[in-house]
Computed example of a mutant assay.
Amino acid sequence: MARISQHQLPHDEYHGVVIVGAGLSGLSAARILLEHDMQPLVLERESHAGGRCMTAVHNGGAYDMGAQFFTVRRPEFQHWTDAWIGAGAVREWTRGFPDISGISERASHPRYCGVAGMSALPDALAKGAQIRLNTSVKRISEGRACWLIDVENGTRIKADIVLLTPPLPAALRLISDENTWRMGALLLPLTGVEYVPCIAAAVALDGPSGLSAPGAIRVDGAVVAWLTDNQIKGISPDAPAVTAHASRAFSERHRDTPLDVVEKLLAEALARFLKSPITSLSAYRWDYGIPANTLQKNFYLVEGRAPLYFAGDAFCGGQIEGATLSGIAAGKAITERLRLSKNTAGRPVGG
């Protein structure tokens, strides 16, 4: 079990490694450190770990609100996926999805999903990790050979190494103005990554959705981009539960529209795609849905007075695979750095 706390932190706390963000990158980095007997502290502003791998319960139904599935391209990620399958956390869902006309894409590589929802991935990675939820980082700034992390509740945490894993625009905003100015040239390569927003909706129905197996369709319309029947998918056995993702154009146009207005517009647009009446609809706004572009790196390191690492879905090609592999790569780099530091500290002087 992950050690998760939702209480306030003591003042002037110290940790060797602090990871900001308990999404897949942060958790996979923590997993690597844990496997080498190192215990980082993971800070997460939300009430749940996993980032966009979020399975929510609404009116008795279960909904994957963010990522719907993941694919595997690289052997290292296949190794992790096979382990999740062996543990009963992940299964192959399908090898292709139909569009709105019913024409399926040509069967190709597997699309995997969590057996009980996509939150199975962060749940597997979080085992044994020290995670503090509802802990919003306000600012990080350099101290003397350390980083000072100011939390919104007034706490200050000192760390020898910090790994930032939120979406890059959000991660960069955490760095103090003084450090942003001083390290401007070093941070510049990270400033060009942009994200596409996505509005998702949990849609409860009065009966079957009318979608056929495997339980999802690519709509690619002006308002609706994607539909998943979570009952057919197998994660909501007790209630009809549909996840809808709005199109990029709709999500961008309604970035600041009140959610009750968005919900009404989505309900009107969704009615034509669903066999049964909608009984309730709850919208959720992902401000950072997916990166529009990514960096050709596994992670990024800024060498200041103390090391500052960046990882996440803006690296390694993006998506779930890229986010996880980026965290793994950063975790390995931090582990090696600490190992070398320990060995150097233990050497006799002279001779």
Rank of each mutant, 00 (worst) to 15 (best):
Q231P: 03
H7E: 14
A124N: 04
I328T: 10
V20T: 15
I161K: 06
R339C: 05
D256E: 14
E321I: 13
G351F: 04
C198E: 08
H7W: 03
A213W: 09
S104T: 14
K138L: 14
S247E: 05
D260L: 04
G154F: 03
V196H: 10
Q39I: 12
A170S: 12
A56S: 11
G88V: 06
Q231L: 09
V90Y: 05
M183W: 15
I157D: 01
D177W: 08
T228W: 09
L265T: 01
K297T: 10
L164F: 09
I175G: 10
T228P: 00
L205H: 06
I100Q: 12
M1P: 13
V196Q: 15
F77W: 07
P348E: 03
V72I: 15
G351P: 00
R182Q: 15
F77H: 13
E13C: 06
E268S: 13
D12E: 15
F77M: 11
D150F: 00
V151G: 08
A267Y: 01
A333G: 02
I4R: 01
Y288M: 10
R111D: 00
V349G: 07
E152G: 00
G16A: 02
A185N: 10
A292F: 04
M65D: 04
S119G: 13
E178A: 14
T191Y: 02
R95V: 06
W226G: 00
R144Y: 04
I199E: 10
A330K: 09
A83R: 13
P214F: 01
I320D: 01
K127S: 00
I199M: 07
I320T: 11
A201V: 12
L163G: 06
C316H: 11
L308R: 05
K138S: 13
